[in-house]
Amino acid sequence: MTSQRTLFQEFKKGIWAENPVIKMLLGMCPALAVTNSAVNGLAMGLASTFVVICSSAIVSIIRRFVPGGVRIPTYIIIIAGFVTLADLFLRAYFPVISKALGPYVPLIVVNCMIMGRAEFFASKHPVVPSILDALGTGTGFVWVLVVLGSIREILGSGSIFGVTLLSERIYTPWVVMILPAGAFLSLGLLIALINYLTQRRQGAH
């Protein structure tokens, strides 16, 4: 992390090179727990992105005024505040999704990805780079959750975003894919595939 990086690089790194889920293995709990359908993955991703952007922005703004000894509790209050906002918003405007995500929306508070951005980036950088950093991280989180949710929904329910692709007559869904075991399998195989592709590309150079 250096100040030499351009603003675009601050945004870009979270999408692939420092992707919270597939590269840094942060935010595993929501990535595994709510991705039993693509739309749940998307909703969780967007809610987390909202929280990480807002909390990074605020943390960056107040970074000079917060005593070092209480910075972590302060960050947690800020993050918890935004999580509650997101939760209330979902309950008011997207009750179906709010119900599907259940307790996992309040649990965004303990997503290490958000704390990580606050502690390692926003508390040391100005507002604009902090927001871009959070936006990139959030984008990286969203795409992985949507991909995971899609894989699990296609195999486990024969549909994607609720649209039936494979009728039950020709395809018996693998129930395991929408259960927790399916989450671990899909995430493990996805990370393995990405590591394989990365290594092959490095090898080719």
Partner: peptide
């Protein structure tokens, strides 16, 4: 075990 979890009815 995978089949048991994937096709619990069958």
């Amino acid at each position: 075990a995978f089949l048991q979890a994937a096709y619990p009815v069958l």
